[in-house]
Design a protein around this nucleic acid. Sequence first.
DNA 1: CATATATGTCAACATCACTGACGTATCTTG
DNA 2: CAAGATACGTCAGTGATGTTGACATATATG
Lengths: 172, 172
Amino acid sequence: MPDLRTGLQHLYLRDEDLRLGIELLFYAYRDFTAEPDRMLDDIGLGRAHHRAIYFVGRYPGINVGELLAILRITKQSLSRVLGELVRKGYISQRPGTIDRRQRRLELTEMGAALERKLSENQRRRIAAAYRAAGPNAVEGFRRVMLGLIDERDRGKVAGEPVRPVAAATARR
Amino acid sequence: MPDLRTGLQHLYLRDEDLRLGIELLFYAYRDFTAEPDRMLDDIGLGRAHHRAIYFVGRYPGINVGELLAILRITKQSLSRVLGELVRKGYISQRPGTIDRRQRRLELTEMGAALERKLSENQRRRIAAAYRAAGPNAVEGFRRVMLGLIDERDRGKVAGEPVRPVAAATARR
DNA sequence: CATATATGTCAACATCACTGACGTATCTTG
DNA sequence: CAAGATACGTCAGTGATGTTGACATATATG
């Protein structure tokens, strides 16, 4: 426990640390998304499409509700985005086998190609940052980032499947 | 397909690492902005206003061009946001003393209060993540995040002033 | 059968960004 | 000083992404 009396300097530095954290998140996210955004713009898509494509690629067979829970947007917003992606041939769908109300989503070949192209850019950026920072720093990065995420979603990032049942079902 | 088991596995893990990085950034940014967004919504402002208020608070006396360079949006977009903030009394402006074409921006008392309220939330989240991860992890977090940022802006985050002259002038 | 759930759709709207064109005040330089 | 560059503003139009609210349909479940 920090001694509150000790002081101003300690407190000041701490505030600086937090401010730095805020700015790191702003600048990193700004630069992390800038290049994919530009590529997407060239083919008439936006960041929202990227996110949908990414998570459909990540969880093949994911349904709309699960995707909504990840993206935290309204179904109306997602519906527009998914509709465009299906219409343009990036995403295919078929009814769930167990629950036929569900739309199970998958990337088409074209969708997978786009996903690779977009995330390759981001992977490269991350790889460069990881290499420059070293393995120790990477572990720290992970720990802090996980702590920033709402508790209920930490499992998702840490490798837990979106839908327990699907873990066994999904081809990989 | 696994010819060289070790090689493939290594490659697989590495890809996993990068994928994790992508997702950490998505989820962390999503959750980092959600609560301030809600507060802003209550007073009819949005995330863009938050960013402007934040950086005006960070660099009192900053001018429009410098703010544009940080935010990387068009002057038309920023103009709208700044105009609203000035009209609503969160930001004050006065011509630069050296170059009178410039608008030097500062937070009003009201603006500073709002800034504190919004960033307090984010500071708390960061503080919690830092505490949970430990000082070593924090250093790693910083190193990786810095590496994600475009090289030309790393200095800004690392404490370099936006405008060398202002460093001496700015109160604080 | 009744109800809940998964998803979709229509409509209206706000925010935040963009491009392009043009205007004005002020600084800088030949 | 005249001419051009710079800092900033504004008008107009557009698009992407999000929202709320209301209602529809198919399917699952008790």
